[in-house]
Amino acid sequence: MKKSTLTILGIAVMIMALVSTTNKLNAATDPQPEDSVIYRDPMLQVANNYGINALGIRAVGTTGLTYKHFNAKGNAFEAILGFGNNSFSITGLAEKYAAPFDSDYLELYYGFGGHAVFQSDSNLGVDRNRFDDADDAFGLGVDFILGLELMIPQTPLALSLDIKPFFEVATTGNAYFGIDPGFGVKVFF
């Protein structure tokens, strides 16, 4: 099997596991009376209880440190400082949170942004086809993100699973497209 097929299959399995876990967590909580309609946004609830900032790690595709800041509407700005073999990247994303699932713990987020990547001695880099054989290279790109975030009840922790497709142009003249799947763990403060 191709590596991309295994990645997509792995993401699908993780999404099913997240949804299953969320349904079990919802079933364990006390239901609200049927005559009252209460809409709670888990991200705003977490922000109220633990803080409006989150710091964490992201792995699989772009691996590195991530920082999120939430505003009063539940939207977020995310910055990712990614590290690779002789390379690093800086990504900024504006994200919108939505609650399409019948869950108090699982939310969908999506958004867009951009990145800059710096790489030296690309023969030692993570993706040798990305920058040819230039000693030093620089790339700029446009990013999109789609993900799921699972809040761990009674804690300031969240797990996320996302894909961050991007299009990039490098100083070598090459254009590059990537899917960039990610798994993250964050703590709110």
Rank of each mutant, 00 (worst) to 15 (best):
K3T: 14
G10K: 11
V13L: 15
L18N: 04
S20E: 08
T21F: 10
Q32L: 15
P33I: 14
P33H: 15
S36A: 14
Y39M: 07
Y39A: 11
N48H: 15
G51E: 02
I52L: 06
I52V: 09
N53V: 06
L55N: 12
I57L: 10
T62M: 13
L65E: 07
H69A: 12
G74P: 02
G74T: 08
A79R: 13
I80V: 15
F83G: 14
F83A: 14
F83I: 15
G84L: 09
N86D: 01
N86E: 06
A94L: 04
E95D: 04
A99I: 11
S103P: 06
Y105E: 01
L108G: 06
F112C: 05
G114S: 03
G114M: 03
A116S: 10
D121Y: 01
S122T: 05
N129Q: 03
F131T: 00
F131H: 01
D132M: 04
A134R: 01
A134E: 01
G139P: 00
M151D: 07
I152F: 11
P153T: 02
Q154V: 15
A158R: 13
A158L: 06
S160Y: 03
K164Q: 12
K164F: 02
F166H: 12
E168Y: 03
N174A: 11
F177G: 00
F177E: 01
F188E: 02
